[in-house]
Design a protein around this nucleic acid. Structure first.
Lengths: 232, 232
DNA sequence: TGCTACATTTGACATTTATCAATTATAACC
DNA sequence: GGTTATAATTGATAAATGTCAAATGTAGCA
């Protein structure tokens, strides 16, 4: 592993409290690799051999069943996957593939488990991370079960707007067909949902979103921190 | 807390590896209470003051949004909730209410966090528990996004049959309207889904399910451990 | 530039699921 | 045992969402 990649992850919440010695143990066995776009990094059902960390680029986590496929989430710089499988020494529940050229650190799952057993600070960090991820997925389920697809889209856009700094205009940063899958609908339905938001002052042209009247769409979206705030 | 309740939880995976001293610290501040049916134990959005453990009976975890409500899961003897919120000192993402008369142990969340900081064995157990729960929710999302409601029902029944020992005939143990909500559909749709499974050799009369031809329904359900096996 | 592959959109239609209202069944309680 | 409240089912219908095919748009590349 290149020295220049070490600081990139040392300061992630997952690693920044742990003992230097434990950290070096993790780093010692780690690989860094640059992957081309659309490279499959992990496969659903395979044993989890590595904890992955996205240093640069983006990775899609997806799941398949019976010839159907759904995108679970998209991970970017600083995100780790798949921690729960690595810790439990269990098979991956999701596949992972790069969306673009991406730089990924891979730490052998065995090392992660070994250090986790020894280093209390790391164990605590893993707890915080897992609890955070768990709550994220719960929020996702709530969205899926309690909202229609238009409501999910509306909330997604409001959340993205906030994340992008709050400007009226911002960019999607995900292909629409992938966004559709994340939101649990088909590309065609997303296309129609986008149209349905026009009367609420939401314009989407290509990758550019503009929300001309936030209050208007908020009455439809009814965002709540208990679903839509990633912190909280 | 009554002495007789202590062994009931000491041997749960979450507590059985921790130091005796840490365990007593948790027990010292804990309450045990018998709740009547339909008692609201925790409320979505409230701060998480206690880690709850179901000693006896059953508790429904549910979520609300915009006058809609959905059942997230039903917990029985030995289950804990809501660990992630307690650890992160975050608001509850779900409400919890008893379905029947239930005995519940409540450990102040503050104590849980304090012991978690001190006791490495407990921290490790929390990690394993959270990773397990996380994977459970991921499986739930996969079911919701990849399967139709009939397929979800079919798999639910196969899973329940296995859990009940594998006999041809077994009992539902959940009201149908709640089952419908768990599966992400209305009671009416569940009723129709049940009918739709008749040609596959599934009969449901009241609370009694019998699966006369398991192979038949399995071709429809296509169960996979990556969604349907709670272990794995 | 023009070609090509692929993403997106649109229209027509099918399927799935929800809603509403009415009926029937069930279980708790006096 | 009858009463009552609630759960479950059924039918009719509506709404939401998916499918398929075609048209249009877009980006990368020879």
């Amino acid at each position: 592993m290149r020295d220049s990649d070490i600081p990139a992850i040392r300061f992630l919440p997952l690693f920044n409290e742990m003992a230097e010695e434990s950290f070096s143990e993790l780093v010692r066995g780690a690989y860094v690799q640059n992957f081309p776009p659309h490279m499959e990094l992990i496969v659903e059902g395979d044993p989890c051999d590595f904890l992955h960390i996205v240093v640069d680029g983006s990775v899609e986590l997806l799941a398949n069943w019976n010839d159907r496929e759904t995108t679970m989430t998209i991970l970017r710089e600083g995100a780790t996957f798949i921690l729960a499988a690595a810790i439990r020494d269990a098979p991956n529940l999701m596949s992972g593939r790069t969306l673009e050229r991406s730089r990924v650190i891979m730490i052998p799952a065995e090392d992660v488990r070994a250090v986790f057993k020894k280093d209390h600070a790391f164990a605590r960090a893993v707890v915080m991370e897992l609890a955070y991820c768990y709550r994220g997925v719960i929020k996702g389920v709530k969205g899926l079960k309690l909202r229609t697809s238009i409501e999910r889209l509306a909330n997604y856009l409001l959340k993205l707007q906030k994340k992008m700094g709050g400007a009226e205009s911002f960019t999607l940063s995900v292909e629409k067909r992938r966004l559709a899958s994340i939101l649990g609908m088909t590309p065609e339905s997303l296309s129609r949902a986008i149209k349905a938001l026009r009367p609420y002052g939401v314009m989407i042209d290509g990758q550019t979103v503009s929300i001309t009247n936030p209050d208007d769409i908020r009455t439809l979206a009814k965002p709540t921190p208990l679903i839509d705030d990633p912190r909280s």
